[in-house]
């Protein structure tokens, strides 16, 4: 069972995750309007910028994060922004959305000028993670765990980051056992998705470069 402290930590993380969402206007724009390839590019860029801002606001709420070295805070956010954003977008593809929303969004991304070679692994990731049917609490905690990855480039005090990540991992592990009593491998599978995310992160830099060139 979760201790009182762990329950409080989980509530704090989940509340912060829910509080900081990208503005609904973007979702409406994506749904309602027709765009040229250029406009699509601009809209996706705006969405990406907003996602990073939301990520930073969420991260500020993680207990202890703001007490880390300032440059380490930036290194952690820089290193995890792409992964955390992909995780956040999982909601779009797994939650019950208005009919056709996910397809429309997929269509927009496919028409954005990004090469098919990059798009396929992204959608494969969404499909594989959707199969896990993650609970909202698991998604919020997994995002916090991702952000607090000690071995990101340029992080100086890795131990300080580990000290923040470990309690999150403990809560997530217990939560997985409580919510999926018949799937003892569930926690391991969640962590496996993090490995997949890391691969996407490496891919993402190439994706951006090729997109810009186009």
């Amino acid at each position: 069972e979760l201790t009182k402290e762990q329950q409080a930590l989980m509530k704090l993380i989940v509340d912060a995750y829910n509080k900081h969402q990208i503005p609904q206007d973007f979702a409406k724009k994506l749904l309602q309007e027709q765009y040229s390839a250029d406009e699509n590019f601009l809209l996706l860029t705006e969405v990406a910028t907003s996602q990073v801002q939301v990520l930073v606001e969420f991260t500020k709420s993680i207990p202890g994060f703001l007490s880390l070295d300032h440059e380490d805070q930036i290194a952690l956010l820089k290193g995890s922004a792409v992964e955390a954003t992909y995780l956040r977008s999982v909601q779009v593809f797994s939650k019950k959305m208005p009919t056709g929303y996910a397809q429309l969004l997929e269509e927009r991304i496919r028409k954005s000028g990004i090469s098919q070679d990059f798009i396929t692994p992204i959608f494969n990731f969404y499909k594989s993670i959707s199969k896990l049917h993650m609970a909202p609490e698991e998604q919020a905690l997994l995002t916090a765990v991702t952000i607090l990855t000690p071995d990101r480039p340029y992080v100086k005090d890795q131990q300080a980051v580990e000290r923040l990540q470990e309690p999150m991992l403990d809560v997530l592990r217990k939560l997985c056992a409580l919510q999926h009593p018949r799937e003892p491998q569930y926690f391991a599978r969640l962590l496996g998705r993090l490995t997949e995310l890391r691969t996407l992160n490496h891919f993402h830099t190439e994706l951006l470069t090729s997109w810009r060139t186009n």
């Binding site: 930073v56 930036i74 951006l208």
Partner: peptide, 21 residues
């Protein structure tokens, strides 16, 4: 890469709370 500078810029501003800049 320029993409990383852009990202870092957004992060620094958001950490300082100057989203409007």
């Amino acid at each position: 890469p320029a993409s990383n500078l852009g990202l870092e810029d957004i992060i620094r501003k958001a950490l300082m709370g100057n989203l409007e800049d």
